[in-house]
Amino acid sequence: MDNNREKVMTLKDAIRTYVTDGCHISIGGFTVSRNPMAAVFEIMRQRKRNLHCYAHSNGTGVDELIGGGCISKVEIAYGGNGKAAPTCIRFKSAIQKREILFEDYSNYQMSLRFHAGAMGVPFIATRSGLGTDILKKWGFSEEMRATDPKLPDKKIEILDNPFNGWTGASKVVLVPAINPDITIIHVQKADKYGTCRIEGLNFADVDQVKASRHVIVTCEEIVDTNMLREKPEYNQIPFIHVSAVVHVPYGAYPYECCNYYDYDPKYLSQASKFAKDDRLYKEYLEKFVYGVKDHEELLSIVGKEQLERIAADKRTGYATGLDRR
C-alpha cells in the first residue's frame, strides 16, 4: 500500500531497499514470459540470502535465484519452462542435493493462495487435488510450521462441504493465503506513480501484487500518467499497491515481453547447457551475472544483432519466423 508519490528508483536501490535477507518473495511472469529477470540478476549480484520464495510456474527467474544460492525455501507448482528450453535444472538439482526446503502445490492452488492473500481471507476453497499426494505429503515439517510465525500451521486441509453438498461437492480443499513481503513484476508500461498496464497474458501478477506488503515494478517504458488514464480499463494495477518503479528496457530478457521482444532461444539453450554442470554454471554466473555491473551490460554482451532478431513484430507481438530450433 502506498500513496500518490513519485516512486522512480534505480534497480540497485529498489532491490537494496525492499529485498532483505530472509524475506518472503514472489516474482511475476510465467515460464518464458515476463519474468523480472533484470531484478532477479540484481538480487543475485547483491548476494541476498535465505529468501522464502512463492512460485506457480515462474520458470528460470526462480531457477536462477536458486542457482545463485539466494533461496532456502520454495513453495512451488512447477519448476520448468515447457519445451522452450529444458531449464529449471538448478531447482531439480537443489532438491536432489538437499540444498533447499520445498513444498509442492498445483498452479491453481498457488494462484488461489495469492488471491486469498489479496482478498484478505485466511484460506480459499478449491476442488483440486483430492486423493493426491499434494495433500498427503508435506515438504515443510509440522515442527517447522509450528515454530515459524510466517508460516501457516498446515500445508493444506480438507473440509466437508458445510453447505451439505451444495453444487454437488462433498468435500473441498482449503489452501492458505500468501502475503509476501515483496513481489517484483515486469510490465510493458507504468507511470512514475506505479499504475501498470500489462499487455498479453497477466498470469497471476495482479493478485501477487495486491497480496504483497511491498511491490517493485520494472517496466519497458515509463509513460505519461494521462496516457494511462485515457483508457483506465486497460490498467490492471493502480499505483496504491506499488512501492517502487524502475525503468528497465529488456527487463525480462532472456524471456519475452509481449509486443516488445521474444524469448531468446540462443541464450536459453546456452544457459541450459551451463546449468547442467556445476562448474560450467559457476562460469556462467561469473560471466553473465556477477561479471556485469547491470542489465545493460548483460545486453551489450548479447549484442544489438541478437536483440534485433528477437524484436517483436507489430502485428503478432512476437518475433515472427524467429529460428527457435
Binding site: 511472469g29 510465467f30 515460464t31 518464458v32 514470459s33 515476463r34 506457480h56 510456474s57 520458470g59 519452462n81 515447457g82 519445451k83 522452450a84 498452479n107 491453481y108 494462484s111 488461489l112 488471491h115 483440486s128 498479453g200 497474458l201 497477466n202 498470469f203 497471476a204 501478477d205 495482479v206 493478485d207 519475452e256 509481449c258 521474444d262 524469448y263 517483436a312 503478432t316 507481438g317 512476437y318 515472427t320 519466423g321 527457435r324
Partner: peptide
C-alpha cells in the same frame, strides 16, 4: 506458429481473451 511454452507470446496472439491462471482453471 507453434508455441514452445504455454506462456509463449504465440498463444497470446489473436486469442479470444488473454486473462490469467485464475480464469483458466
Amino acid at each position: 506458429e507453434i508455441p514452445m511454452a504455454v506462456a509463449d507470446p504465440r498463444v497470446m496472439f489473436g486469442a479470444a481473451s488473454n486473462s490469467g491462471l485464475l480464469e483458466s482453471f
